[in-house]
Design a binder for these strands. Structure first.
Ligand SMILES: [Mn+2]
Ligand SMILES: [Mn+2]
Ligand SMILES: [Zn+2]
Ligand SMILES: [Zn+2]
Lengths: 147, 147
DNA sequence: CGGCTAATGCTACAATGTTGCATTAGCCAA
DNA sequence: TTGGCTAATGCAACATTGTAGCATTAGCCG
């Protein structure tokens, strides 16, 4: 029988065929616990806070691996830095919102640009990235309260 | 009367209030002559081909300046590199197509994501980036011819 | 032409991501 | 449980893309 002390993250990692390591578990759990997408610095800081030292390169490779396995997805912000969030990307082809005020990137799972547009003849898209820029709900509230 | 040996690019640069320099004219003309967006390497190579040696930093600053003046616009590709094309961005808020085969980024002026979507309550977007990924028309033709 | 200063060129630096390779540790089979 | 194979890690060095400071050049205007 499956031991009950193994986290869901560990199960996902094992199921994908890779080795279940401390780093992979910790990183995937950090992503799963976050409502917004995180960049490398965010994740490294969280690992440090959890008392888990680690190497920059290992974190890059771990995140790439999680994306390859469909356990995380990636979005590139206007600061040219990659941000990650738990969950595959092919399953959830959704839009993102970049807040110019707080810098956070949020997933808009309800918006899917897929079959919304007709491209010129000859173009064969296999995915679409839609990113909105502006003020997020939280920052909008704060601004309203302040005024 | 205006001398006829001054290029349209030079006129645009003069009209924006900046100094009309060799570099600005050459870069803007390169952008105007290209049907697709160009990255720094593309532009530097073209400058070299035209016998115009140039400094990396000056090219960065020149392109930033052209964007500020509304004479060019920028899009960030999945390779995290900026690509530039002549023409302002606020006037033409259009989608782009990144070809995974040839790597080119093309403007789809006919597609404007503006008022197509309804965001969740509280979100206030002021612009939207829509980028398709797949096979462009040229590459699709080549593949068809080859088969 | 002469002078003011925007623009350039150069160097050094910053941020983000990659490669090579020796070492460690997860997994499996005996 | 142990031993061995090799995936994963850690470290150092490097690559790419973009910035900052500052001395020099050159566009513009009188
Ligand atoms: Mn997302
Ligand atoms: Mn464009
Ligand atoms: Zn915000
Ligand atoms: Zn193509």
């Amino acid at each position: 029988m499956p031991s009950p002390d193994v986290s869901p993250a560990a199960h996902l990692i094992a199921a994908s065929g890779g080795r279940v390591t401390r780093t992979r578990i910790a990183v995937l759990e950090i992503l799963q616990d976050s409502p917004r997408s995180l960049n490398h610095d965010d994740i490294a800081a969280q690992l440090a806070a959890d008392g888990m030292p680690h190497d920059r390169v290992t974190l890059y490779r771990t995140l790439d691996w999680l994306v390859e396995q469909g356990l995380a997805h990636r979005v590139i912000g206007p600061d040219r830095a990659r941000r990650f969030k738990a969950g595959g990307e092919t399953r959830s082809q959704h839009a993102h919102f970049h807040c110019d005020r707080c810098g956070h990137v949020l997933c808009l799972e309800s918006i899917r640009p897929e079959e919304q547009f007709t491209l010129p003849a000859g173009f064969e898209p296999d995915r679409a990235e839609l990113v909105f820029h502006g003020t997020c709900a939280d920052c909008g509230r704060q601004r309203g309260a302040k005024a």
